[in-house]
Design a protein around this nucleic acid. Structure first.
Lengths: 112, 112
DNA sequence: CACATATTTCCACTACTGTGGAACTATGGA
DNA sequence: TCCATAGTTCCACAGTAGTGGAAATATGTG
């Protein structure tokens, strides 16, 4: 089950921070060094963490000059959320029903 | 961050199966032995896994006669999904927008 | 009380994960 | 070509997680 690899990639304080930062950064992404600087992480440690996220399919990388730019893989995150929600709705409206409110509260245009 | 403990509790094939089963089971829950039987897991291994889910706040337990009945903690799962969705919507409608469709597709009354 | 059932706790062993120093690779500029 | 910059890979160590046998605990029954 690939959901497990996504979950375990995100089940780590540092990696979750990296992933959130990349989600915020949008399609432009961020250079590895920039992430390391912002989170004050040694570059090799960060590299290992990015590698875990990459193998879970949660981020992509491309080279740009001397930098390597990482971007969040929205598709994969959406798939993970979809899996968790399907899982929930399968037997439990109690969980998923209020999610509509959460989506509205998150105040993001298309969700309304 | 407590989201990390929920994520890592679910980032395990066996525990994810247990949790999904409990979500399906609803408020009545399932006895530990019944879960062990259905998933063909040694009782002590299952007990350890249930313990991890418990400490993440994802399940509750109550004694009923000789059995111990476990139930999914809907609140906690809802909170986790909320966190993930907020995280997403914070900067990325691309992820959360299609979630409305997922909720509808999941065909659970209150979500419509 | 003696016994069966249901589950947990204890324990030891193995395997995996996270971390960071040091060396290596790739790119761009003088 | 030589050097600086940006990242990665290699390696070894420490810590954590997963597993299941065996013993312990709790409950119900005759």
């Amino acid at each position: 089950m690939t959901a497990v690899s996504c979950l375990s990639a995100l089940a780590h304080e540092g990696r979750l921070r990296v992933f959130r930062m990349l989600v915020q950064a949008g399609v432009m992404g961020l250079a590895a060094g920039e992430i390391a600087r912002r989170l004050d992480t040694p570059p090799n440690t960060l590299s290992a963490n990015l590698n875990v996220l990459f193998h879970a399919g949660l981020v992509l990388s491309r080279r740009q000059g001397r930098s390597i730019i990482y971007t969040a893989q929205y598709d994969r995150m959406r798939a993970l959320l979809g899996f968790l929600v399907e899982d929930c709705c399968g037997g439990a409206p109690e969980i998923c029903a209020p999610l509509g409110d959460v989506l509205r509260k998150a105040d993001c245009g298309p969700c309304r």
